[in-house]
């Protein structure tokens, strides 16, 4: 009999306390952000898909088309092709494609590159209706940034 009433008392008390917590939360400021209207700054360390680094001095990429990134990518999503242009010593890039549908953002390609020619982009707003939209032409993205 005693337990019957004590259970009622402690139980009731715990329920009222719980209600107190939610009541307090009801009048506390919200903690979320209305995403497309407000945006939180993303950390500069964010690892998006890869991009070629633009060497501002030479106004071109650093890549020497050695193909290390292509070989070491665990998901086989990079395609690099270089060609020796006439009158130039180095090979120049003719193709640098990334199949982002398969990329696991592991960062192997960035670390393996002998010339440190790759970086992570800051793009996180990626959404599209087709698979092909995620086949990025990294070389073209670089051309666009060129001055």
């Amino acid at each position: 009999m005693k337990q019957y009433f004590s259970e009622l008392y402690t139980g009731g008390k715990s329920l009222v306390e719980g209600l107190g917590v939610t009541m307090k939360a009801l009048f506390s400021p919200i903690v979320t952000v209305q995403y497309p209207r407000e945006e939180i700054d993303i950390t500069p360390n964010y690892r998006g898909h890869i991009d070629l680094i633009l060497d501002t001095g030479k106004n071109t990429y650093l890549c020497i088309s050695c193909g290390m990134c292509e070989k070491s990518c665990p998901s086989d999503c990079i395609k690099v092709k270089g060609k020796k242009m006439e009158g130039e010593k180095k090979k120049s890039l003719v193709l640098f494609d990334l199949d982002f549908t398969k990329c696991s953002l592991c960062g192997t390609c960035v670390e393996v590159c002998p010339k440190d020619a790759l970086e992570y982009s800051q793009e996180y707003n990626l959404a599209a209706f087709t698979k092909e939209a995620f086949h990025f032409d990294i070389l073209k993205r670089l051309e666009e940034r060129r001055i």
Partner: peptide
Amino acid sequence: LERITGSRLTYCYYRFGGVYK
């Protein structure tokens, strides 16, 4: 964690012989 690993959920942060950053 995002500030140091660069991702929010599927981290790939440790490396053989240390950590990435």
